[in-house]
């Protein structure tokens, strides 16, 4: 397996003086080509920051991030990002949103007729893949949250990115919609073969989707543990009830609690209960 993304002793400091916050410290990780890696951890562990650094939307203050052995220089079309929400363009219809990257200069350069036709065909194919064909001419604000995220994913895939970065993309969706989206994104991953880095706060989601789950810890943000997911490559919803799955889920949840620095004070809870019952 070739390494696609190489994160080497990366550090990130926000602010100066007494407002200085060390968001990431000495983070090192290699992500293989076509691998699916999910990032979990207590809030403030820097998982989103790390994703944004890979995307070129933040700049790291220490270490190096290499994509295909080359240091990243700002955002680029090879690393498309899907956000939690508000990223669709409400003034463009669904189809125009998906084709947005074709309006950009790099999307128009050196295009032959055949290329343009192929692009149009790709947009149609992505629309169909996402189950959006009937919604092609709708405005984004006419769609449900789940549909909007499908458009966002299709739009990100349009430019054939080698890396797909997803920052809690299903965080605002209800549980049923989320399950459908999980199988959809796995399908996309098999079909399009991007390298996928995915940030989430949902441990079940993190395990179900990933080849590896990276658990990060806060203050300063760092990688705590990396879990290899002991499930077959082809995932099915039923696997969520297997002992392996449940065991891993329990282990990760316990570790997140330990690293979050917040403990449930049982004595305090008991006291509250006592006062309530009087």
């Amino acid at each position: 397996m070739t390494t696609k993304i190489s994160i080497q002793q990366v550090g990130k400091v926000f602010g100066e003086g007494h407002r200085r916050v060390e968001a990431l410290k000495d983070v090192s990780l290699d992500i293989a080509d076509n691998e699916f890696v999910t990032f979990v951890g207590a809030s403030g562990c820097g998982k989103s920051t790390l994703l944004r650094i890979i995307g070129g939307l933040e700049y790291h203050t220490a270490g190096e991030v290499l994509v295909d052995d080359r240091p990243i220089m700002g955002p680029g079309a090879d690393r498309a990002m899907v956000f939690q929400h508000y990223s669709l363009y409400p003034w463009l219809k669904v189809m125009e949103n998906i084709k947005f990257s074709r309006r950009l200069r790099h999307g128009r350069e050196n295009l032959s007729e055949a290329d343009v036709e192929a692009a149009s065909g790709r947009a149609d194919a992505l629309l169909a893949l996402m189950g959006l064909t009937p919604a092609a001419e709708a405005w984004p604000n006419q769609l449900s949250g789940g549909m909007q995220q499908r458009v966002a994913i299709a739009r990100a895939l349009m430019g054939r990115p080698q890396i797909l970065l997803m920052d809690e993309p299903f965080g605002a969706l209800d549980a049923q919609t989320r399950e459908v989206m999980h199988d959809l994104i796995l399908h996309v991953h098999r079909l399009e073969k991007p390298t996928l880095a995915f940030v989430t706060h949902d441990v079940e989601e993190a395990i179900y989707l990933a080849d590896r789950v990276v658990l990060m810890a806060p203050r300063p943000g760092r990688i705590d543990t990396i879990y290899q997911v002991p499930l077959p490559a082809e995932r099915e919803q039923d696997m969520k009830h297997t002992p392996e799955f449940l065991h891993l889920k329990k282990e990760i949840l316990a570790r997140i609690r330990e690293t979050s620095g917040m403990k449930t004070d049982q004595g305090m809870l008991d006291q509250l209960n006592m006062e309530g019952s009087v």
Binding site: G55, G56, M81, F83, R105, G159
Partner: peptide, 22 residues
Amino acid sequence: PLAQIEAAQTMGAQKGETINLV
């Protein structure tokens, strides 16, 4: 929204394109 701007940037939009098109 910043997400709209950043989405364009990760689709390869140049500065001028981001200002005009987004």
